[in-house]
């Protein structure tokens, strides 16, 4: 009996002692956390995409509270949400241009030359083997590395081609660095006209491997309202995003290879099957 009582008392005493020690340490070495950080973190989307340049939403919230950045750096939050955060902290939200990702290639399996490839199903691995199994060395390889990186499921793989859905894309830029061909750019969301080609090679060479390559025929350049709306770089035309053309340029230009596309229509699949 004495043994049992001693054991119980000993254990209880030990527990109480440890509780005291932990309590005293917690009190003595307490780290003062700013309560606002937690509130701001809850106001953020919480997807931890890293599009703001910080290590996740909590880190971004800390940076906002400490004044190192502004709430509008978050590419995912909608404007009302950002306004709420700014009002809560009593600071200005600032302005940030809305962007979205554009995969500058339209070469789906139907219109391009491809060789068999049995390696690892990842664009970065495939690019190591003779630059991927595609006739064009500059186009989308189609193993969905960018689609897997997207936290918002905004990239669809359609017939061996990555297609961005502008309505789902938040412009976080996670996909940009995953593409071994550097095909993906962040373009202003207000612009809808893009050239879906990235190959700097001569037009005839491009046409041999891809029916929808930009052959630098300049039809779109001539059809544009003012001269520098489309820029030519060697054998490749691109939208000038600082002076963008309006959407009806695609209608007017009548691009013979359909490399000039509207991002919204491209996502909706309007250009599929138009090239025979």
């Amino acid at each position: 009996m004495t043994l049992i009582i001693t054991a119980v008392l000993f254990t209880a005493g030990l527990g109480a002692l440890l509780a005291l020690v932990i309590g005293a340490t917690a009190k003595a070495f307490a780290v003062e956390a700013d309560a606002r950080v937690e509130t701001v973190t809850e106001m953020l989307p919480g997807v931890n995409c890293g599009g703001c340049g910080f290590a996740g939403c909590a880190d971004f919230a800390k940076a906002i509270v400490e004044g190192r950045t502004i709430p509008s750096q978050c590419p995912v939050s909608n404007p009302e949400n950002i306004k709420r955060i700014a009002e809560y902290l009593g600071i200005t939200a600032g302005e940030k241009e809305k962007v979205f990702a554009v995969v500058r290639c339209a070469g789906s399996c139907a219109v391009t030359v491809r060789s068999p490839y049995n390696g690892i199903g990842d664009c970065r691995s495939a690019a190591l083997v003779a630059g991927g199994a595609k006739g064009c060395d500059f186009g989308c390889i189609g193993f969905a590395t960018c689609a897997r990186a997207c936290p918002f499921d905004a990239i669809e793989m359609r017939d061996g081609l990555a297609v961005v859905h502008p309505d789902l894309c938040t412009g976080c830029g996670k996909c940009v660095e995953t593409c071994p061909k550097n095909l993906i750019i962040l373009a202003p969301a207000a612009v809808d006209v893009h050239v879906y080609c990235n190959s700097p090679e001569k037009g005839a060479l491009k046409l041999k491997v891809c029916k929808t390559a930009c052959i630098a025929c300049r039809k779109c350049v001539k059809a544009a309202d003012s001269e520098n709306q489309m820029t030519i770089n060697g054998f490749l035309v691109a939208t000038n995003y600082s002076n963008p053309p309006i959407s009806d340029l695609v209608e007017k230009a009548k691009c013979p290879t359909k490399a000039l596309r509207l991002a919204t229509k491209h996502a909706a699949g309007a250009y599929e099957g138009v090239l025979k």
Binding site: T2, A7, L18, I22, T25, A26, F29
Partner: peptide, 25 residues
């Protein structure tokens, strides 16, 4: 009285408390 039979109980409680304290510090 010899309390050696309590060793598992005591060890696990002490280790848990120790780590907690170290973490706070």
């Amino acid at each position: 009285i010899k309390l050696a039979f309590l060793k598992i109980l005591v060890f696990i409680v002490v280790i848990a408390a120790l780590v907690q304290v170290v973490e706070i510090i």
